[in-house]
Design a protein around this nucleic acid. Structure first.
Length: 275
DNA sequence: ATACTCCCCTGAGAGC
DNA sequence: TGCTCTCAGGGGAGTA
């Protein structure tokens, strides 16, 4: 569940379900899930903690407890579920269970085991954590077209830069395609070829698409089943992503599938001109 | 500075 | 039916 709109949706539900509740038991079955300390330590430290504040930077979930910042990156397929009781038998892809004070259980499920959890002593400034050293401004934070343009690597394809979390944090493969289509810019266009007007258009469309996607509770496609029982609705709004050979919604030209930076990329060859 | 390749993992879908 | 291959909303490390 990885891009900012999906992460934000997860965050909103977690806040609603968990805020104020206490962790009374913690079991991590996949040791590597705990990336900042041995998993036994994470289990021990989380016990007795109450969930206090919920926020997001890029694709990272930040759950503040009494004494810690618990940070989670879902990567490709990480998902949370709040269950009325511990599952039995346990799904083989559930890698952690956290019992709550009211008997419910927070389950973490991740088929590919790419997701990671980090636990740090609480700080006033999570941004100063090494974890965020290479994470740029969140996609919903204000950024000027001038600053954005200046931050783009000159020789890199614009799509690659949109996916680079140090440039802007929170955009992934789906929304990068949608943003560039809405902006009429070919994904292979080099940063140095873009002008201030292009940068402004990309930023405007980024904000518009991200906010719209959050309103729709994100995108649910392929085998990516919903997290927390929330099914996204933005897949119905997608214009080009995963629409190879379908007519462009603007000009009717068949959408093409290409590779940019090793990632599948969908583009209208008519509407998206390479500058 | 940029661009690959591989790696972490598992399963779904396509093609044969 | 079953096999093999490719691909998947992410990102880090290592190497040209």
């Amino acid at each position: 569940m990885p891009e900012a709109p999906e992460v934000q949706t997860v965050l909103n539900v977690l806040e609603k379900e968990l805020k104020g509740h206490e962790v009374v038991s913690a079991e991590i079955f996949h040791p590597k899930l705990s990336a900042s300390m041995p998993y036994e330590d994470m289990e021990r430290k989380l016990m007795g903690q109450h969930f206090r504040k919920f926020s997001r930077i890029g694709k990272y979930l930040i759950l503040e407890t009494d004494d810690y910042d618990w940070i989670v990156h879902l990567r490709m397929e990480g998902k949370f579920y709040v269950l009325p009781e511990a599952p039995d038998p346990k799904d083989k892809h559930i890698h952690a269970l956290f019992g709550l004070d009211d008997g419910r259980v927070l389950a973490y499920k991740d088929v590919r085991k790419f997701g990671r959890m980090y636990l740090y002593d609480k700080t006033d400034d999570v941004r100063s954590l090494p974890l965020f050293a290479k994470v740029g401004k969140d996609v919903l934070d204000p950024m000027s077209p001038r600053q954005f343009l200046a931050s783009l690597p000159k020789k890199k394809a614009i799509k690659t830069s949109l996916l680079d979390q140090s440039v802007i944090a929170g955009i992934g493969n789906i929304y990068a395609d949608e943003i560039l289509f809405a902006s009429g810019i070919h994904p292979e266009t080099k940063g140095e070829s873009l002008d201030l007007e292009d940068a402004s258009r990309i930023l405007d469309n980024t904000r518009k698409i991200m906010e719209d996607a959050i309103r729709h509770k994100g995108t649910t496609i392929r085998s990516y089943t919903s997290s927390l029982g929330v099914k996204g609705g933005y897949q119905g709004q997608l214009q080009v992503h995963r629409k190879e050979k379908e007519p462009c919604p603007v000009c009717g030209t068949p959408i093409e599938k290409i590779k940019v930076g090793q990632r599948s990329t969908y583009v209208c060859p008519q509407c998206q001109i390479k500058k």
